[in-house]
Structures are given as C-alpha cells and as structure tokens.
Write a protein that binds this DNA or RNA. Structure first.
Length: 399
RNA sequence: GAGGGUGUAGCUCAGCUGGUAGAGCGGGGGACUGUGGAUCCCCGUGUCGCGGGUUCAAGUCCCGUCACCCUCCCCA
C-alpha cells in the first residue's frame, strides 16, 4: 500500500486553499487595523503548560493532546490551542514590565486527537488574539468588535452570543446552587451529564440533549448570582456594544470548555452549519496562575478551516497570459515571458507540443485571458500576437 | 470513546441471485505543421482499500483491519 497522509492531517490545495487563504488574510487585516501585533509561536510546548492553563479535567487535556517525550524524557505536547502559548510568551518576554498593556495575535496549526468530521481535523488552524492588562469592559467591547468586523467582512451569517461566568467570588456559590438544582433533576439528565453534573456542572447547561435542555430551562442563571463588580462589568459591556452598534444575543447557557475563563465569554455560531466559528472570553486569573503578575486578560480564537467552509465566494486570480511559442523561437519567447512577468503579469509558458490549434486549446483550458502567440514572423518583427481569448480579437503588439 | 454509511480507472459511478471488470467525463494521439472553446476516429491490466476465510471459482458471501464521510461526545 502506498503511504497515505496521517488521519486528520490533510493536504490543503486548490479552491479549498484559496478559501483558506482568503479567510486568513481578512482576519489578519482586521487584526492589523486594530493594531494587534503578530507573534509566531512554536508548535511544541511543555505539556505542563496546557495542563495548568486549560485545566486538568478538560477533555482536551485528558484525551486529546498529542503527547511525546523528547530525548531527555521531558513530556512535550503539540499545542491544542494558542492562548497558553501566548501567555507563556507574554511572561517569558516580560511584556508586562515594558508596556501598560499588550495586544498580540498568532496564527498557525493546532493539534487535537479527535475524530475528524466536517470542519474538524486533527491538524487545524486558528488565528487568535489576546489582550493583556486591561480590566475595563472597553477591552471586552473591542475584542468583540474585532470578531464582529471579521465576520461581517467575510459575509458570514452568524450571531454573537455573550454571557458572563463571574469571578472567583461569585462563581463558586453559583456552582453550588446549580449542583443542588441538578441533583433534583437527575432522572431527566443524559448519561454524559450525570457524569459531569458534579465535576463540571456548568457544562450541563450547554448539553444538546433535548431532555437536558428541558431540565435545565429553569435552572439558576449565573447572571443572577454575579457579584456587584461582575454585574457592573457585564452591564457596561452590553451598553458599550449597543453604543457601537454591534448586535449580540445573551445566552445564559453559554459556557466554555476551557477552565480558565472568567467574566465575559462569547461565541459566534454560523447560522447555516451550526458550528462555532469564533469563541473567546476573559481569563483574568490565568497569567497569575502561570506564574506571572496579576494581569487581567482576554482573547478569542477563530477556526480558519471553519471560516473557509462558510465563505461565499473567493476572489478571482489575476488574468492569465499563456505564451505560445510556435516554431524556432524559443529564446525570444522566453524573453517575452520574462518581460511580462516583470510587469507583474501572471504568465504560463506553454511547454505543450503540437500545432497552434492544440496550443490554443490548451490555453483555453487553462482559463487564459490572453494567448501570446509567438511564431517566426513575430520573432522577426520583434512583436507578439496578443489574442484576447474571450472576444477572439488579435493584434500585434510590442512587449 | 459510541453509532451509521461508503471504499471498483485521474473523477463520477455501474457491475442483478459468486463464474475472474465496464460506462460517462477527463486525459493522450490523430483527422487539422499559423489560430481555441465544435465534430469524428483511435487509446483503459485497474494489486475492485488491505489481510484472512468459505468455495472448483469472490468485486460479489463471512470475519478482521485501515481510510473517508456523517452523527454524538468534545471543541475553533
């Protein structure tokens, strides 16, 4: 058997790649407009970084990481997401000491050992942005505004949902209240939720199972338990979003799969495919938990493949010129191709053999806008016959 | 990790109750050595995903395995 690519690790090519590039470049340009600075992070980190940041009991850490040991026996991981690495870099370069706040973005492959399905691979790409050092809700508003603008620019139909998960003051009491509530609903919960109702009760709110949804419909809401400062933060954020005309929807059942989130969380779900394309939130304790100074922070990540899947149309490539040498004119024809390319034209030099007819047929198949016909007459006169492949018009021109 | 579907030529697929492989499209060549998208003619051995089993005989039945697609879990 010929060697195949590894499951979930795919070649990206053709139109799919064009969509991918488009999605990526739009997101990048929106981030650059907001003056986020790019950082190129390594793909491998110590496994401990993810265990400490994402949370020991999450599925990502428990069963979805690509783990391996280096030659000295240290446990390494292919990164399953980007925030942990960004925080590590923020601390390692001591950005907290040299600027009042820091805005970073990263792009690159992420790895999760999951079952592949539509819009989901073991190697996939994310672009993420992180804002370190601003506690005020204006930072939340700006991050959500970036998300809104990139979705708008890519013409992706989706709604931004927001919620608040509270802080270490108000979340524990809420968690307990929710646990108590769920204990009374046990007979309505699915098997997965029975497993997580004590371990990670917030996740039950997010379950797609009908009976769970129903059981949870009158569950206590985090918003009702928010402490004064969280409540203030959340209502200011909503006010700001309204002021800058960013449509959003509150979803009291919105939670995140990663442990580090606090206060604001948000997500954009595509209307057509029903998959999450962007997700993010605030993580005010993570920097400190990873050994840094107390630093409020927040960010988001987009799945580039998922975005690409939803793109309406892709830009057409530049108009193609096909240079057709005909007869003993090779040196001249190559010179013409070089000249056209130096003018920035997209040029294919035809290596196809056969008569002019066959070569024009070839140019046609390539989708050429112009055929640059070079026979011995043209070579002698120092011109080319430029044929417009749509209209069929042809004239001799100097290049 | 659980469930369902699929796997035959480059692509899309046909192949009925087992008798050793076909079509369309694409591609190549020609009709046609200076003008395309048309027409006509010619060109298909591909480990029938892989391994094993049943059988005189397996693309076709059975078991296993791998991959892909979809759903769930989880997540971007």
């Amino acid at each position: 058997m010929a060697i195949q690519s590894v499951r979930g690790f795919n070649d990206l090519l053709g139109e799919e790649l064009a969509r991918f590039r488009r999605a990526s470049s739009v997101v990048r340009s929106v981030l650059e407009r907001h003056n986020f600075e790019e950082i190129l992070l390594p793909v491998v980190e110590y496994a401990e970084l993810f265990q400490r940041s994402i949370g020991e009991i999450t599925d990502i850490v428990q069963k979805e990481m690509f783990l391996f040991k280096d030659r000295k026996g240290r446990l390494l991981a292919l990164r399953p997401e980007g925030t942990a690495g960004a925080v590590r870099a923020f601390l390692e370069h001591k950005f907290y000491a040299e600027r009042p706040y820091t805005k970073l973005f990263y792009e690159g492959p992420m790895f999760r050992y999951e079952r592949p399905q539509s819009g989901r691979y073991r190697q996939f790409h994310q672009i993420g942005a992180e804002l370190f050092g601003v506690a005020e809700p204006s930072a939340d508003a700006e991050i959500i505004s970036v998300v809104y603008e990139l979705l708008k620019e890519l013409e992706i139909d989706s709604v931004i949902e927001i919620n608040s998960l509270g802080c270490k003051e108000c979340r524990p009491p809420y968690r307990e209240a929710l646990k108590e509530f769920l204990a009374q609903k046990e007979e309505h919960l699915c098997k997965d939720c029975l497993g997580r109702k004590d371990r990670n009760p917030l996740r039950v709110l997010d379950c797609k199972e009908k009976s769970c949804k129903l059981a949870v419909s009158d569950a206590p809401k985090m918003v009702d338990y928010l402490c004064d400062s969280c409540k203030e933060h959340y209502s200011q954020l909503k006010e700001l979003l309204t002021h800058i005309n960013i449509p959003f929807r509150e979803n009291f059942n919105l939670v995140r799969g990663l442990d580090y989130y606090t206060r604001t969380v948000f997500e954009a779900v595509s209307d057509s495919l029903g998959i999450t394309v962007v997700a993010g939130g605030r993580y005010d304790y993570l920097v400190q938990e990873l050994g840094g100074p107390p630093t409020p922070a927040l960010g988001f990540a987009v799945g580039v493949e998922r975005l690409a899947l939803l793109l309406k149309d892709i830009p057409k490539p530049k108009e193609l010129y096909v240079v057709i040498p005909f007869g003993d004119v090779l040196p001249y024809a190559l010179k013409v191709a070089k000249a056209l390319r130096s003018k920035g034209k997209r040029v294919e030099f035809s290596y196809r053999r056969g008569g002019l007819r066959k070569q024009l047929d070839f140019a046609n198949r390539l989708g050429a806008k112009y055929a640059v016909i070079i026979g011995e007459d043209e070579a002698k006169e120092g011109v080319v016959s430029l044929k417009d492949m749509d209209s069929g018009e042809q004239k001799k021109v100097k290049i």
